[in-house]
Computed example of a mutant assay.
Amino acid sequence: MTWQTVVAQPSGLGESPFWHPDEQMLYWIDIPGRQIHRCNVFMGTVQSWAMPSEPGSIAPACTQGQGSGLVIALRDGIYRAREWGAELQQLVRAGHDTATTRFNDGKADPRGRFWAGTMYEPRDKSVAELFSIDCRNSLAPAVERKAGGAIIANGLAWSPDASTVYWTDTPTHTTHAWDWDADSNAMANRRVFHQWPGKPAGWQFGMSGYGGRPDGAAVDVQGNYWVAMFEGARLLKLSPAGELLAEIPVPAQCPTMPCFGGDDLQTLYITTARYNRSAAELQAYPESGCVFSMRVDVPGLPVNFFED
């Protein structure tokens, strides 16, 4: 398996990639660049859309079963755009202090709700939370707090049978799993899915002894959990039981999130970061911030659409 460079123009912090099956395009965001990008991977063309604040995550959306634009988590709330470049309509205003907290990793669930977690930027308290937003059956969005006690929300994903939800707190190097009832949206039996060793004190780029911390994730049709290890220059494949199945080196020290795409969902894409990275790291990994792809043997799950 060999990585190919899909987008050579780097993002500061690429995140939230997904493959749009109707448009046959790859979407992702640049958080500090305040941009949403989409790429026609066959033509190599990229379109960019400026946001008023940092986008933490995006998902494709549909209305009455017809694809229509995006749902977008910005610093201060969840927004709906009916088409590319359209006016942003606020669905939910953030309940957090936007001076210290913003929305981060998020996705639509298999029933069409949008989930988004928060990131507490001072990183000295575990006050980040996870919310779901349901716009399917009511005039006003139904917002539920689903979990909390984190610093930076990441790693959101669901199992193929929609019975398990995963969520990561990146600074504590911990991914949790819950039993999940898709219809009632109830979570139970919280447990540690995988715990990684912490970052050694004083560790810097070029030193040994650190494998990175869990960032964004995706799940394949066999239920394996693929997680990008930020500062670890690797992508890990974990079994549904949390066992390490494979470790794949990535051509950037800071991979951020994988997704599956292409007609057969056997092209694995991964976003990466270069924002605030050292000169030594960028010299060693000059394509940091670019989007990469490789072919894999097992297909991934298709992206879920937000429904309203």
Rank of each mutant, 00 (worst) to 15 (best):
Q4T: 15
Q9L: 15
G14P: 03
G14H: 01
S16R: 02
W19S: 01
W19C: 03
E23M: 10
Q24G: 11
Q24D: 11
L26Q: 06
Y27S: 05
Y27K: 09
W28L: 00
D30I: 08
I36W: 02
R38E: 09
R38S: 12
V41P: 00
F42E: 14
M43C: 08
M43N: 13
G44W: 07
G44V: 09
Q47E: 15
W49R: 08
P52G: 09
S53L: 01
E54W: 02
P55A: 01
I58V: 10
L70E: 08
L74G: 09
R75C: 15
G77H: 02
I78L: 00
Y79G: 04
R82H: 14
W84G: 07
W84C: 07
G85V: 02
Q89R: 13
L91C: 07
R93C: 12
D97C: 07
N104F: 13
N104E: 14
G106M: 02
R113A: 05
W115M: 02
T118H: 00
L130E: 00
L130N: 05
F131N: 01
I133R: 06
A140D: 15
A142D: 14
E144G: 04
K146D: 05
G149H: 03
A150N: 08
I152K: 08
I152S: 03
G155F: 06
L156D: 00
L156V: 05
D161N: 04
A162H: 13
Y166W: 12
Y166S: 05
W167I: 04
P171W: 00
T174H: 08
H176F: 15
A177V: 07
W178M: 09
W180M: 08
D183W: 12
N185R: 15
A186F: 14
M187G: 05
A188F: 05
R191G: 01
P197I: 11
Q204V: 15
F205K: 09
S208H: 13
S208Q: 15
S208P: 10
Y210I: 10
Y210V: 12
G212T: 05
P214Y: 12
G216M: 10
G216Q: 07
A217C: 10
A218I: 10
Y225P: 00
Y225V: 04
W226F: 09
W226L: 12
V227L: 13
V227E: 12
M229D: 11
F230K: 03
E231S: 14
E231C: 06
G232K: 06
L235F: 01
S239A: 11
E243G: 10
A246H: 10
I248Y: 10
I248L: 11
P251V: 04
P251Y: 02
P251H: 03
P251D: 03
Q253R: 13
F260I: 07
L268Y: 12
T271I: 09
T271P: 04
T272K: 02
Y275I: 08
N276W: 03
R277A: 08
S278C: 07
E281H: 09
E281F: 07
L282F: 07
Q283P: 05
Y285P: 06
S288A: 15
G289W: 00
F292H: 00
S293H: 07
R295M: 08
V296A: 11
P302V: 01
P302K: 08
P302R: 06
P302F: 03
N304H: 11
E307H: 14
